[in-house]
């Protein structure tokens, strides 16, 4: 987790007071995480880019409704999850198919592996299969899995983001892992 000298709340206050450049700082701080969340939730880099833009736009429009009762990042995750779920509903209605997103993957500290094309190709294919399995989960389970494993949030933070109890988070996570286990059996 990155710690900043000036907390997000200061920039939120500045933005609400009309300082447009303050929100740019918030974008710079959080867009990578939000893109990662959207990519895992939607399984498609183009949709993830759109969802990331819409998330920040929505956050900018409704920033005055942020009450500082939680961290700005938690609130932003909530906006992002809602935006992604809207995209999932739209995609379901359009019957859109999953497009491979592997070309955009970043693997820090995997240079040795990157030297071997076959192993890289195998890993890419395996990651695609895992992402495809995640995409088959119901949206609520998908959100818990992505927030817990990809974003490394704690139960309490996920409960805040999804507006449910910690017990519900644990239950959804357990069910999701069991579902994924059966889907990834042959991997």
């Amino acid at each position: 987790m990155v710690c900043y000298m000036i907390p997000d709340d200061v920039y939120v206050h500045k933005t609400v007071e009309g300082d447009g450049s303050a929100f740019n700082e918030l974008v710079q701080r959080h867009y990578t995480k939000i893109y990662g969340l959207a990519c895992r939730m939607l399984g498609n880099p183009d949709d993830a880019s759109d969802a990331t833009q819409e998330t920040f736009l929505e956050a900018y429009k409704s920033l005055e409704s942020f009450q500082f009762q939680s961290k700005f990042s938690t609130w932003l995750y909530r906006v992002a999850i809602n935006t992604c779920q809207q995209h999932i509903r739209k995609s379901d209605s359009r019957g859109r198919t999953l497009i491979s997103y592997s070309n955009s993957l970043r693997e820090p500290g995997c240079n040795a592996e990157a030297d071997i094309p076959e192993r890289l190709a195998l890993k890419t294919e395996r990651d695609n299969l895992i992402q495809a399995a995640i995409n088959q989960l119901p949206p609520k389970q998908r959100a818990v899995v992505v927030l817990f494993y990809a974003q490394n949030l704690k139960y309490r933070e996920i409960a805040l983001v999804l507006d449910c109890s910690e017990g519900t988070v644990a239950s959804r996570l357990n069910t999701a892992i069991r579902n994924l286990k059966s889907m990834l059996k042959d991997l």
Partner: peptide
């Protein structure tokens, strides 16, 4: 093993111009 697979998923890298696009759209 399933949990290990989930934990080892790499972070997707955002497009290089994504932050600019977001800022332009907000402007």
């Amino acid at each position: 093993r399933t949990v290990s697979l989930l934990e080892n998923l790499p972070d997707p890298a955002p497009p290089p111009d994504l932050a600019d696009r977001i800022q332009r759209r907000i402007a």
